[in-house]
């Protein structure tokens, strides 16, 4: 069982009059073994949701629970639980240390499990993970510069998997990639969902991509969750006008764009 729950979380940047609410009392539940899509445009606060879940940004109000344990405070139990939430970043070029071989980067993921392991065990595990993301394990000693963007993104996924996360957060992981590479990464995620029973919060501005990987979806705008529900339901019968506007804006292959009301 692993369930991630955002309970009325708020994030405020700055102080006094200049303060801005990046996230405004947002509720969101990522259910065990499912993928929850979070869609929104730039500035909607969706990336802040990712950052607070892994502790990169503190929350100003509300709480985030992993299987009922609050992971937002400084208590050791909270800190330990937080390691079970892992994240894959948007930019595969800055997400890997340029001076560290990719095998060592992935081995770093083993830290989060809290288990001490021998060098041989670590190597075997790195080997297995690279295999899992379809990268030749013999290349473990190479530096990130030897890999393409799509390959790097698969390596960062392997690093996150090494931590054996209860919940994986994917923040715009395909938006820096070419469409043909995007397909490869999305297929890998699907494969992992099925084989590992992965629980995932999938954040993207691309509605079609969110629809493809998610079981449930939340739509975010100006720090608020404006709509959520089962993917098919929300996208087939959007309630919120903003969701409808988003849906209308997505270009459909081979169909002339409807621009008169833009």
């Amino acid at each position: 069982m692993s369930e991630l729950e955002f309970r009325a979380v708020s994030v405020r940047y700055g102080h006094g009059r200049a303060a801005q609410l990046a996230v405004d009392a947002a509720d969101l539940v990522v259910r065990d073994g499912t993928t929850h899509g979070l869609v929104g445009e730039s500035g909607s606060g969706k990336s802040t949701m990712a950052r607070i879940a892994v502790g990169l940004t503190p929350v100003s109000g509300g709480s985030i629970l992993l299987d009922g344990v609050d992971i937002t405070d400084r208590a050791p139990a909270s800190r330990l639980a937080r390691r079970r939430v892992q994240m894959v970043f948007q930019d595969p070029f800055s997400a890997l240390d340029p001076r560290m071989p990719i095998g060592s980067s992935i081995a770093e993921g083993l830290l989060a499990t809290g288990r001490r392991s021998s060098r041989l065990d670590r190597e075997a595990r790195v080997h297995e993970l690279l295999d899992r993301v379809h990268i030749d394990p013999r290349r473990a000693g190479e530096s990130p510069s030897a890999f393409s963007g799509g390959q790097r993104q698969r390596i960062t996924i392997a690093r996150a998997l090494a931590a054996e996360p209860a919940v994986l957060i994917a923040d715009e992981i395909t938006s820096a990639l070419d469409v043909s590479v995007q397909g490869v990464v999305l297929n890998l995620l699907r494969e992992l969902q099925q084989e590992l029973h992965l629980t995932m919060l999938f954040i993207s501005h691309n509605l079609a991509v969110v629809r493809y990987v998610s079981d449930e979806v939340s739509v975010m705008r100006a720090g608020r969750i404006v709509e959520h529900g089962g993917t098919e339901t929300v996208l087939a019968h959007p309630e919120d006008p903003y969701t409808r506007e988003l849906l209308r804006s997505v270009p459909v292959m081979g169909e002339p764009l409807e621009l008169e009301d833009a």
Binding site: S180, G183, N187, R211, V250, V252
Partner: peptide
Amino acid sequence: RGLIACVPDMATNRALPLPVIPT
């Protein structure tokens, strides 16, 4: 054809993997 097929749209079958262009 690969380029058309590999991009998921609002009608892509979610049960199947996306087609891939050999890179």
